[in-house]
Amino acid sequence: MADKLLTIEHLKKSYGDNLILKDFNLTVNRGEVVVIIGPSGCGKSTLLRCINGLEEIQGGEIKLYGEKIDRNKKNIAEIRQKIGMVFQSYELFPHKTVLQNIILAPIKVQKRSKSDVIKEAEYLLEKVGLSDKRDVYPRQLSGGQKQRVAIVRALCMHPEIMLFDEVTAALDPEMVREVLDTILELAKQGRTMIVVTHEMSFARAVSDRVLFLDKGEIIEEDIPEKIFDNPKTERARRFFHTFEYDAVKNHTDTLNRKV
């Protein structure tokens, strides 16, 4: 039987009168990669923030291995250590070097030995191809490099689950690839992840399961092949259509004729 890592039951989240998530249910098994897609404002980022206890929730329960996630409880900082989160805007600490960014929490929060943590950080940096950036400050990095450091920083805490919140949305196109490759590599290692993204082909490649979210509800949920190639709902079909374009020019073979 599948090993239930994260369970969300009847989650309700609103900002004042604005209901973002209504009666949301989700179970993520160990080793599973769940990709969440949907139009902006559908509640996908809010969902990740709720899972990490960054938002007050108005109803329902979120549990990690049966332990309730409640941002007002004392153990929230402990639970958060088991959840790695990577933000769209990287949010590296600007006053610390790359290495210092990575080793801060493992040393100060998990009280691990400094030399072990540094060894691990160096190993992870090498894997994402940033060994030479060990001692530079974040402002000297490109967006893609920053995002890879942010991923390493989260990984170094040995989280049970990783949350990726539109991590390529702020990147120049040529940097998207290097970040997504890093995430693909994590998927290969069998890590549990929830990925919010707009990169459809990446979603198809990385995921075990895709959720299509709209107005705070799961409209469709399926394996990637089915949901992308054969969406059951009209809403999903329309959404996927926004990523395709019909040609407006009639292409004849003019370019070849010259040869």
Partner: peptide, 12 residues
């Protein structure tokens, strides 16, 4: 977000 990314790393 600086606070949030710190909280997300488990810092109190």
């Amino acid at each position: 977000h600086q606070y949030e990314s710190s909280y997300a790393l488990g810092l109190n």
